[in-house]
Design a protein around this nucleic acid. Structure first.
Lengths: 342, 342
DNA sequence: TTGAAAGCGCTAACAG
DNA sequence: CTGTTAGCGCTTTCAA
C-alpha cells in the first residue's frame, strides 16, 4: 500500500483541515504558530511519512544549500583529503556538496562550471585544471556575486578568495634543509612553470642557494610534469652531467620516489651518496625504504578552511569587499632520504 | 552594468515578442519549432547571457539528473577511485553527483540518506557504514522505486543491486598462492566478522588449506580491525606461539605493511623467512621494500559499473524485476613479499 | 508552428 | 495565530 506519489504539505493540510502555509510554517518552526498546532502538524507529517521536497523549497528561496567543487581529479590523495575537509564543514552547516572532476581538461572544466551554475550552487570551490589559461567561465559566478574560493592551483588574475601554501617558502625550506645536511650540488626537478605554484617553488630554491653562497647551475634545473617517468629520466640526465649533483629537491613525492628507485638500482646509497626531498607527503613517502623527506601540505585543513570561508561569504549579507588570500603552513618532515647528519 | 538578477526565458520571449513556451521549446530543440525561430532564439539567448535554471526545470520534470553517493570516507584510495569512476560515467550521461561521507557513523548515514532523498536524487549508490545494522532509511528509496546500487560493504538483506568482489575467492587465491610458494604454516589476519566480506575471505582461507590437506589451526587466525597497530600486535602475538607461522594472509595492505615493518625490524628476511600477502593494492604496496603481494580490487571499474547500472535503471521505464549482483574480478598481484620460489 | 494557461511544491507578503 | 494569494522558472497540455 505504498504511496508512490509523494506526500506534500497540501496533503497534510487537507487531512488536518488547515492551510498549507500553516503546515509549512509549523514544519519550519516559525514562532508565529502555536505550540499545539505545531505538534499536531509534526505528528501528522511523521505519520504520513512526509519528506520535504528540497527542490521546490530551493526554487522558491533562491537558495540551494549546495556548494560545488571542481578539482582536476578526485582520486588523488591531496584532493580527496581536501574534499573530505570541505564535506565535513559543509555537512555540519547543512550544505550539500556537488563534486566534479575536470580531468585536467579545460573544456570539461568549463562545462562543469556552467552546469554547477545552472544548478544554482550557493558557492564554488575550485582548483584549476592544468590546461586552464582563460577564466571567463568563472565570471558567471562573480557577475552574480556568488562567492568562489580557489585553492592549490590559483592565478593572480583571479578576483576571488584563495587558499594556498607559501610555495616560495616550500622551495626555500626544502633546499636549505639539503644544504644544512651537507649536500653541495643540489638539483631541482621543477614542474610546469606556467603554474605559479611551481614558479614560486623554484624561486625559493634559487633564493636558498644564493643566501648560502652556492652557485646556481641551470643544468641542475630540470623541467617536467613530475610523473614517475619524468623522475627517472631526470635523474639519469643529472647523473650524466660532468659534475653531477649530490642531492635533489623534487616538485612532488612521486618524482622523488622515481629517482630513489633508480638510484637504488644502480647501487647508490641514500642519503649518503645522494639526498632527496619531495613535496606533499604522499602516504607512501613514510613507508618506503628509505623513507622520503618531504613537505606536508595540510590538505584536510585547507578543505576545512575553504568551506568555512565560502559559507561565511554565502551567509553574510555584506560580502567582504577585499579578496582574502589565506596561506596555510607547510611542515618539513625530515625522514631518511635526506638525513645525512647524525 | 551587470544584470544581477538572472535572465529567464520570459526575458528572452519579451525581447523577441514571442511566448515563453516557444523559447523553452526552441532551447530544448523541440522539433515542432521552425528552424528559423530556433536560431533566432538561440542567438538571443547567447547574446543575453541566458543560463537555464536547472532547479526550476527539475521541479517541473520531477527529475534532477543527480545521483547521490554515500561512502564511509571519501579520503581513502578505494573509495575515491570508485567515486572517480562513477563521476566519469555520470558526467558523460549528463548527471551530477552529490557525495557524502558517513564517517562510518550510522546516524550520519541516516541523515545523509534522508537529505539525498529530499534533494530528490534520481538514484543512490552506497557503501554501508561500519555501524550500519538497520536499513530502514533505505526504504525511503525502495518504496518510491528509486533505484539503489550498493557496493563493497553490502548485506544480503538488502533488496537492491550490488557490486561486489568474490571475497571467498580472494581468501582462497591468496592462501593458495602462499602454499604454492612453499609456506607451511599460514596465518590469517581477519577483519571484523560481522562484515560478510571478511567472513567470506576467511572461508576462502580455510578452504584453501583444506584443499591442500593442511591443518587449520585456530591459533593462527587473529581477528582485528586491520589497522597498522592491529597488524603489529598480531605479528607479535603470532611469533610468540610455540609453533609460529611462516606466512600470513592479511585482510588489507595496511596491516600487511605493519607486519612487514615489524619483521624487518627484528631482522627477519621477507620473503625467505616469512611470506606476506595483503588485499586491495594500495598505492604504497608497489613501492615499499620489499613490495607487497596483494589482490587488486578494481575500484575505478566498480565505480563505472555501478554508475552504468544505476543510470540504466533510472532511465529504463520497466525496472529490472530481479536485483542484480555483479561480481567483479580480483587480480592477484605477486610481488616480492611472497615470492620465495625462483 | 506558436500561444495561453496551469502547475511542479514550497514560502512569504499581506490581510485578518 | 492562521488563511489567501501569488510566484520562484520551467514545461506541457490543449487550443488555435
Amino acid at each position: 500500500m505504498d504511496q508512490k506519489s509523494s506526500i506534500t504539505i497540501h496533503d497534510i493540510a487537507r487531512e488536518l483541515n488547515i492551510s498549507a502555509s500553516t503546515v509549512s510554517r509549523a514544519l519550519n518552526d516559525n514562532p508565529r504558530i502555536s505550540k499545539a498546532t505545531k505538534e499536531k502538524i509534526k505528528a501528522k507529517a511523521l505519520e504520513m511519512g512526509y519528506q520535504p521536497n528540497t527542490i521546490a523549497s530551493n526554487l522558491r528561496n533562491q537558495k540551494t544549500n549546495t556548494i560545488g567543487i571542481v578539482v582536476p581529479l578526485i582520486n588523488r590523495h591531496f584532493f580527496s583529503s581536501f574534499i573530505s575537509g570541505v564535506e565535513d564543514v559543509a555537512f555540519a552547516a547543512g550544505y550539500n556538496v556537488i563534486i566534479s572532476q575536470s580531468n585536467d581538461l579545460l573544456e570539461k572544466e568549463k562545462q562543469i562550471v556552467h552546469s554547477l551554475f545552472s544548478n544554482r550552487v550557493d558557492g564554488l570551490i575550485a582548483s584549476l585544471s592544468m590546461q586552464t589559461d582563460e577564466f571567463d567561465h568563472f565570471q558567471l559566478f562573480s557577475k552574480k556575486e556568488i562567492p568562489i574560493v580557489f585553492f592549490d592551483r590559483v592565478v593572480p588574475e583571479l578576483e576571488a578568495h584563495k587558499i594556498v601554501v607559501d610555495d616560495f617558502m616550500v622551495g626555500f625550506k626544502a633546499t636549505e634543509h639539503l644544504i644544512q645536511q651537507g649536500y653541495k650540488r643540489i638539483a631541482h626537478l621543477a614542474g610546469p612553470t606556467v603554474l605559479h605554484t611551481y614558479r614560486d617553488r623554484m624561486a625559493g630554491y634559487r633564493a636558498a642557494l644564493e643566501k648560502n653562497n652556492m652557485p646556481i647551475d641551470e643544468e641542475l634545473i630540470i623541467y617536467s610534469r613530475l610523473t614517475r617517468i619524468d623522475g627517472r629520466d631526470a635523474i639519469q640526465q643529472l647523473l650524466a652531467l660532468p659534475q653531477p649533483p649530490d642531492a635533489a629537491f623534487c616538485g612532488n613525492d612521486t618524482s622523488a620516489l622515481a629517482m630513489m628507485v633508480y638510484l637504488k638500482k644502480i647501487g647508490m646509497k641514500i642519503p649518503q651518496d645522494f639526498g632527496l626531498i619531495g613535496f606533499s607527503d604522499e602516504p607512501f613517502s613514510e613507508v618506503v625504504t628509505p623513507s622520503i623527506s618531504t613537505l606536508k601540505q595540510p590538505a584536510f585543513e585547507m578543505g576545512l578552511k575553504a568551506a568555512e570561508l565560502l559559507i561565511q561569504e554565502i551567509e553574510s549579507k555584506n560580502r567582504l569587499s577585499k579578496h582574502l588570500t589565506i596561506t596555510m603552513p607547510t611542515e618539513l618532515i625530515q625522514r631518511e632520504s635526506s638525513s645525512r647528519i647524525r
